[in-house]
Write a protein that binds this DNA or RNA. Sequence first.
DNA 1: CATATATTACTGACCAGTCAGTCATTAATG
DNA 2: CATTAATGACTGACTGGTCAGTAATATATG
Lengths: 225, 225
Amino acid sequence: MEDSHHSGATGHAKTTARRRKEARPGELTAAALALFVERGFAATRLDDIAERAGVSKGTLYLYFDSKEALFKAVIQEGIVPAIEAGEALLNAFRDDPERLLREMLFGWWQLLSSTPLGGIPKLMIAEGGNFPEVNQFYFDEVITRAHRLFYAALELGVAKGVFRPVDIEAQIQVILAPLLMLAIWKHSFACCAGGEVAPQRYLDATLDLILNGLRQPGQKENTDE
Amino acid sequence: MEDSHHSGATGHAKTTARRRKEARPGELTAAALALFVERGFAATRLDDIAERAGVSKGTLYLYFDSKEALFKAVIQEGIVPAIEAGEALLNAFRDDPERLLREMLFGWWQLLSSTPLGGIPKLMIAEGGNFPEVNQFYFDEVITRAHRLFYAALELGVAKGVFRPVDIEAQIQVILAPLLMLAIWKHSFACCAGGEVAPQRYLDATLDLILNGLRQPGQKENTDE
DNA sequence: CATATATTACTGACCAGTCAGTCATTAATG
DNA sequence: CATTAATGACTGACTGGTCAGTAATATATG
């Protein structure tokens, strides 16, 4: 198990093989994410993932015990940072609930357009049922945390009198729905859609509806900077 | 090769075998729908579908050319009537846009709770990508028609001055999202969810947000009958 | 040569789709 | 009505291909 008597310290670059060993898991999960999102979990072959990562299938098994373990790693690695980014936003905009919601929506869109992470919701919806353990993990680590995030945001708005007093718990899901559908749409029907609504316009409409739906009747429009 | 001289017309019931032949396709698509929704298209074996319908796999091929053809039949048969029901609602409540929206939401929920049809959106999202032809069919016959339906409803409301003048095209998608997510949720994470929001409460919240978000500022609350 | 890293060829389970054949019902014949 | 012929719905064993996972082998590193 342990090693450590190298005589002279060879402290310089561990050269290729050693460096590879540290980079590999990330390269593999990245390749897997891209392919899972594109074709679905079941329809993606391990050979393809390996090829995309520039290794052979056998190598994959040096880093992950099974296809399911790889699946779980993909979710874990991809989503947790995203959730943390959201939690950071909450702290940054504590004093302006409308602005906070706006930032959360656009942050989400940023993620969607610049990374393949937006494919994860679709992936979980599509294949989660066949992998209870991964599903549970996703539920606990992603869904629940995301809910807490939005709960805090809405609660803040209601407490400050910016939003009407609503059924926060239920509204969260209503507000999250358009965000999730935006992601799902992109990975499901975007291909078929001809003259469909552009994401930017869709997001504007979402914000419009949500803010008008939540806003305290007295409150003025807040035309933003 | 040729037949046709039966002398007397034997026109009455052709008993079991003949009756079966007419009932079979429906029985098979029903079985397939249930299993596809439960496990996904790829993960469902034709043997299981056949067994559930009380026949053998070979029989299945007497009625459908391939697994994909069966898939398409399931969608076609299940969804088209649902869309037509929606179109009927539109005509029934032309004069009261708020009521119309309300009826459409609750009609949808009715469908969800009393039939497995609510599983179809999830199914299409999950597996549509691998079946372009089915996907296109769904897009044209379901998504597009559903959009037209909601377009008409919103347009009516705006024309009557009940709703604010909004970006109708974009709002449709925002409004549809919670409905779709309700269906998706039921078939994906309902299992994991412990103290989650009840559908009825969720629907109320949806209506609350949508109607408040759309309502013309002047308009009064309309506390319904 | 000992260890860590990677590859390649292989195995076994699984499943969509096929096909030769069964069996129950119906029609034809005397 | 009894016997034979024809029909067609249905069956289930089989095949051909795919793919997750394994094991034997190779290459680099210290």
